[in-house]
């Protein structure tokens, strides 16, 4: 059993260790001043941040409705929300082109509104949001479902309307689940490759995110690709750690109503 666990750990860690074994910290720092790298890093962070804000703003209320309301076709809605999860990124890319591309389903409408998505940061944001949103929404549904409905009812009888109840009771209690989902969604979005390269292209400084930069560097110069990979590992790792720390900052409280302290 321990041997199997050890094998699994080594297998998962080996590629990451290998990257850092071949890139010295000096090279990593030196690469940071390279315009291809800085452009990709800035672009990745910017598009990911915008995409995640959209995912949170739209995904949170959507997840709450799906978690708390029972309506015909609800199961179908849940399946649709999770669909991008199982969709191969290439299929997602084709789908996005077919929907938002110039010749796509909404192409004419967007064109009439003067909106061109091809080869823009907006296209990157759409691709990232599309692919990463299910990671957040599905976790958010579970987190909202776990909030005891009696607590919501109690808040209402204490004079809180729906909105105040959501912000004062539901959100604080679902916080950990939401954050965990958001961390996964962010990590998935940061590493997004397939849908982005197909839908947004790979133009340095415009649509070339870190994973796309790694791919184009890989064809020319393996060392740069390694340095970029190391950078992506560091950025993702730092984000995950930061999130962990933010969560730990507020001490956890038991949320189960069946946990009783001994009588005094």
């Amino acid at each position: 059993m321990f041997a199997a666990a050890a094998v699994a750990l080594v297998f998962l860690l080996l590629p990451i260790v290998a990257i850092f074994a071949r890139v010295s910290p000096e090279t990593l720092v030196a690469q940071l001043s390279h315009p291809v790298v800085t452009d990709a890093l800035i672009l990745s962070l910017k598009t990911s941040a915008i995409a995640q804000v959209l995912v949170l703003l739209v995904g949170t209320p959507a997840a709450y409705v799906l978690a708390t309301r029972r309506f015909p076709g609800r199961w179908l809605a849940v399946v649709l929300v999770e669909l991008p999860l199982v969709l191969p990124p290439a299929v997602a890319g084709i789908g996005l082109i077919a929907a938002f591309g110039r010749l796509g389903l909404l192409g004419g409408t967007l064109d009439a509104l003067g909106i061109r998505l091809g080869l823009t940061q907006a296209a990157v944001v759409i691709a990232v949001a599309y692919v990463s949103s299910p990671f957040y929404v599905r976790q958010a549904i579970a987190a909202f479902e776990a909030v005891d409905s009696d607590l919501v009812a109690a808040a209402r009888t204490l004079g809180s309307g729906r909105t105040r109840t959501f912000f004062r009771v539901v959100l604080p209690l679902a916080r950990r689940g939401l954050a965990a989902g958001e961390a996964l969604s962010f990590a998935r979005g940061l590493g997004e490759f397939g849908a982005t390269i197909m839908f947004a292209g790979s133009l340095q400084g415009v649509t070339q995110t870190l994973p796309l930069a790694i791919y184009s560097a890989f064809a020319l110069d393996f060392t740069t690709a390694l340095a970029l990979s190391a950078l992506l590992v560091v950025v993702s790792g730092a984000l995950l750690v930061a999130l962990r720390i933010t969560l730990q900052w507020q001490p956890s409280r038991p949320t189960s109503r069946f946990l009783y302290a001994p009588s005094r």
């Binding site: 607590l151 109690a154 004079g159 209690l173 949320t255 109503r257 069946f258």
Partner: peptide, 18 residues
């Protein structure tokens, strides 16, 4: 519920754990 002036004490008390 918020506009009915009732005080409801739940069976398991439903205290806000946070």
């Amino acid at each position: 519920p918020e506009r009915r002036r009732v005080g409801l004490v739940f069976q398991d008390y439903a205290l806000f754990p946070h």
